[in-house]
C-alpha cells in the first residue's frame, strides 16, 4: 500500500494566522514523533517492500515495528544497565549508517528477534565500565520469520472463523476491522506506532493469500 510522502506542516492559530514549514526541515526527532501519531501517514513509503521487525519476550509479549526497507540484517543486540536497562538493536543498512532501535520494555528478557529470520537471543557476556554494565547477546538463527508468522496468521484467521481460501487481498483491505482482531489473536502490539501493526497484518495477508 503506497502512501503519500509528508511534505509540509501547517499550524493554524485561533486568531486566524498560520505558520508552515517543509516537513523535512523539522528535526529528525520531531519527524519521527509526528509520524507515530495515528493522524499522519508514513512519510517514507516502502510500499510492498516494507520490512518488519518482530520482537518476542520471555513472557510471550510480542511487538512489531516497520523499519527502513534498506535494512539488511541484524548487527547486534545489547542492553545497557545504568541502573535502568535500555536495549539497543542495531540493523545493518545499505548506506553504512546502521538503523538503531531502542528497546525499553524489559530488554534483558527479550527472547527472540524476528527480522528476515527468527533469531533466538541468549546472554553472552556482561562487561562493567565504571557505573554502567553492557550485556551482550548472541543471536542464533532459527528458521525464517515469514513462514513461521504466516502460519500463525492462518491459525488466528481460523480461530476467528475466517476461511482464507475464500478471501482475496481486496476482501482484507475493504474490511480493515479484521486486522486488529487478528493481531490481538496473534498477541502482536506495536512498538511505537499502531499503523505498523496494520501494515504488518497486511503484509502477512498478502503472503498468506499468495501461497498455494
Amino acid at each position: 500500500m503506497l502512501r503519500p510522502k509528508a511534505k509540509k506542516i501547517i499550524v493554524q492559530f485561533d486568531d486566524g494566522t498560520q505558520t508552515e514549514s517543509a516537513f523535512e526541515d523539522l528535526t529528525a526527532h520531531l519527524q519521527r514523533e509526528l509520524l507515530k501519531q495515528p493522524v499522519l501517514f508514513d512519510f517514507n513509503p516502502d510500499g510492498d517492500n516494507k520490512k518488519f521487525l518482530l520482537l518476542e519476550w520471555k513472557d510471550g509479549w510480542k511487538e512489531v515495528m516497520a523499519v527502513d526497507s534498506t535494512c539488511r540484517e541484524i548487527n547486534r543486540y545489547y542492553v545497557i544497565t545504568r541502573p535502568e536497562d535500555t536495549g539497543r538493536l542495531s540493523l545493518n543498512r545499505e548506506d553504512g549508517y546502521p538503523e538503531l532501535i531502542e528497546i525499553g520494555r524489559e530488554p534483558l528478557n527479550l527472547k527472540q528477534i524476528g527480522f528476515v529470520n527468527n533469531h533466538e537471543i541468549a546472554l553472552k557476556q556482561s562487561d562493567r565500565e565504571g557505573k554502567k554494565v553492557d550485556h551482550f547477546f548472541s543471536l542464533k538463527m532459527n528458521g525464517d520469520l515469514l513462514s513461521t508468522i504466516v502460519e500463525g496468521f492462518r491459525k488466528a484467521l481460523n480461530e476467528e472463523g475466517i476461511e482464507i481460501k475464500t478471501l482475496s487481498m481486496d476482501t482484507f483491505r475493504q474490511s480493515p476491522g479484521i486486522y486488529p482482531k487478528i493481531a490481538r489473536r496473534m498477541g502482536i502490539r506495536a512498538v511505537e506506532r499502531q499503523q505498523d501493526v496494520l501494515d504488518f497484518m497486511d503484509y502477512l495477508a498478502r503472503n498468506a493469500t499468495q501461497e498455494p
Binding site: T27, H29, N75, R76, R88, S90, G96, Y97, P98, L100
Partner: peptide, 17 residues
C-alpha cells in the same frame, strides 16, 4: 537545544557503525 535528540541519536548510530 531542539537538535539535542537528533545529535545523540546520530552519535549512537556512529557507535553502531
Amino acid at each position: 537545544p531542539e537538535l539535542i535528540p537528533d545529535k545523540i541519536r546520530k552519535y549512537r548510530i556512529l557507535k553502531e557503525k
